[in-house]
Design a protein around this nucleic acid. Structure first.
Lengths: 396, 396
DNA sequence: AGAACATAATCTAAGGTTCGAATAAAGTCA
DNA sequence: TGACTTTATTCGAACCTTAGATTATGTTCT
């Protein structure tokens, strides 16, 4: 089984081109010589290939480096203005739309507040579409240069390319977001879980950079996650893998908003922590309330750290990751003060296999990472290996 | 990052050859035409390639199928006598050595009883080496046709190709099994965790066949597991992924023999179940004792099913597998009577994402699967994609 | 200033691969 | 026996990468 792999010589070239582009994108500006060493391709191949890429305007020259006795190397880099990607973050309280160039500089932003608890799908779709138009106009991007729109949403996106979203806690039950957006724009569309887009952002540009096997935890109001295996986000058979929030840590424990018992999310998101501490807070006030709890040194905080350690230990035993990144606003708040304690709790529960506590680190990207990661969905196919079509499908 | 993928045209051919071989190995006898359809290669390529393979004696003709009005198709299959693989199962009570042909028929067997609780590494190595010689002699295999020896051991095999084994519960602490064996045979050696070799056996020939994303649980005296992602066993950054036995299901719960608390293995292996029921049993009597417990309908059994359901639910949320296979003697004993209850328990805890209870199935291979799977380690490189060197490293 | 040297990039010829189209092979059926 | 069908092979064309030679563009020594 597995009819994967390249077949013909032209696939070979496509793959090598993607590899070169990847090396250039993640390896910063580099000379043709360095590219040759990095990719294993011969200098001749690199030369012809970069020639093509320059002609296609995908890459540009980026100055040259002083020589030490020979012809100076001219540096190449991906052309940031070759194309642009729109990233959308559909959150609890707002819809954020951002336009990025290929270097992931933000060129334009648009925000739309959403009255909390009410997330009318059609309204959200209208916000997104309006935002896309707005940022493209504001960014003064030539039409035709927008490569696509990536959307990070709560919940699970069903496989199949329809962009059907199931997010019980968000009030969405089989919402055809993909179809709603498809009707409003001709641009390529990608819809994925927001925790995964954030994970991809941390993987590409943040604390997960350079790892092949990692886990990125998103601890906000709830708990989400991203599993990285062999350098790519693992999505499982039905695009639903990595739902760390519903990892069970206490059999028969607290009831989770998903309906089951003992989920990590029933103990660990900001909502759960505050609830356990007996604090009543609106979702807008959660941040301040959690900060207060931390300040007071509530015993609930200590328990949360212990329980997080238990969860991390499960993840370590199952995935044996090279690194674990804790992100999300609540995760960063907790980890910012208590990272040593978190590491210790994870280590105490991890006896059956080697574990380096320092492999647990904090995320480096802020809360904007969801939109940033969503935008990476758009450009991933360009750099991605066509032999691995495991990325999010385009909305048909 | 990721300098993977094919580079040159010759790699292309190697990859296509492997793909063809894989199609032939798992797709049973097939005609050239079917192979062309299966692999996507043109008939011309299949023809030249099969020509090579026939000349190399890797494949053979396997009769022909009656035509319905045209030239009959001649069937091809992998030549079972092209080479042989030895599989070794290092268990608690014995060392099992078996010789397989490429069709995985057993050609010879050798067993060595080990006094329980005492697993002197050098003695085990001597048993293995003696067994290898014995089965090769008994199987009357021409020397030079043995492709290698695969060994399934308890515990974790460190990465790096040294075959260093850490198995706390087995009494092994950094045992250089690879080196011990290397000193006694020139054959290619592969050492891997026994739960993973069993998993590979179920994946290739048993209940996991045909899946790309699966989890295979080995419930015996303890609990082990195998995670299959994208059709291959996932090993993580340090070859230690898939340690399902130490997934935590009760924070702060029962102490596990690994030293931590609340592990699945502290509740679910035969040893733990009997212990929880207050039954004292030697490892040789475990099987009968567990059967008795089941017969009596002890409440501990019901609890075990519930806890297994919790564990399965965690696995589903994290991996979103297409299938979960329950294997191992205790798993089969439990599942043989209580599969519906296990499925129900898993479903009850899985609210946050789609879950088909019938994706939980029982293993189809008996306890011999560990040795069988160990033998697959030997032949995997032949069929494996060279672009994915993620398999167990050869012992240097 | 000019020659010698060093490193980077490109060009050319060669070897290897898959593919499409034409051709050969081996049957069935009327 | 001859027409038809289906399977397998052969051959030339189109591409791709590479090694080695060549060209380009510096530095450094005399």
């Amino acid at each position: 089984m597995g009819t994967s792999g390249r077949r013909t010589v032209r696939d070979l070239r496509r793959g090598n081109r993607a590899m070169l582009l990847r090396a250039l994108y993640f390896g910063g500006p580099a000379s043709r010589n360095e590219l040759s060493a990095e990719t294993g391709l011969s200098p001749a191949t690199v030369s012809t290939m970069t020639g093509d890429l320059l002609a296609d305007n995908v890459i540009v020259e980026a100055g040259q480096v002083d020589s030490d006795g020979g012809r100076p190397r001219v540096l190449l880099k991906v052309n940031p203005a070759y194309g642009y990607a729109v990233g959308v973050d559909v959150g609890e309280t707002q819809v954020k739309v951002e336009l990025f160039d290929l270097e992931m500089n933000v060129r334009a932003r648009a925000h739309y507040a959403v009255r909390s608890a009410k997330h009318d799908p059609e309204l959200v779709a209208r916000h997104i579409l309006a935002g896309v138009d707005a940022v493209i106009a504001e960014g003064e991007v030539p039409p035709g240069q927008v490569l696509g729109v990536g959307v990070g949403v709560p919940g699970i996106v069903e496989p199949g390319g329809g962009g059907l979203v199931r997010a019980k806690t968000f009030g969405w039950q089989d919402v055809p977001l993909g179809a709603l957006l498809r009707a409003g724009t001709p641009l390529p569309l990608f819809v994925d879980n927001g925790a995964k887009t954030m994970g991809q952002a941390e993987l590409w540009f943040g604390s997960g950079r350079g790892t092949r096997d990692a886990i990125i935890l998103l601890v906000g109001s709830g708990v989400g996650g991203t599993v990285v295996t062999d350098g790519r986000i693992y999505r499982g058979a039905g695009q639903a893998a990595g739902e760390v929030g519903h990892l069970k840590i206490v059999a028969g424990g607290r009831e989770c908003r998903c309906g089951a018992r003992g989920c990590l999310e029933a103990y660990l998101g900001a909502e759960a922590i505050l609830d356990r501490a007996g604090v009543v807070a609106d979702s807008a006030d959660e941040e301040a309330a959690l900060a207060r709890l931390l300040e007071e040194g509530s015993p609930v905080v200590g328990e949360s750290v212990e329980l997080l350690g238990v969860g991390l230990s499960s993840l370590v035993h199952l995935f044996n990751p090279e690194r674990i990144v804790i992100g999300g606003w609540a995760g960063l708040m907790l980890g910012g003060r208590l990272l040593p304690e978190i590491r210790a709790a994870a280590a105490a529960n991890t006896q059956a296999q080697p574990f380096n506590p320092e492999s647990v680190v904090l995320g480096r990207l802020g809360p904007d990472a969801v939109a940033l990661g969503a935008a990476t969905l758009v450009i991933e196919p360009f750099f991605g290996d066509a032999a691995f079509p495991a990325c999010v499908p385009t909305i048909a």
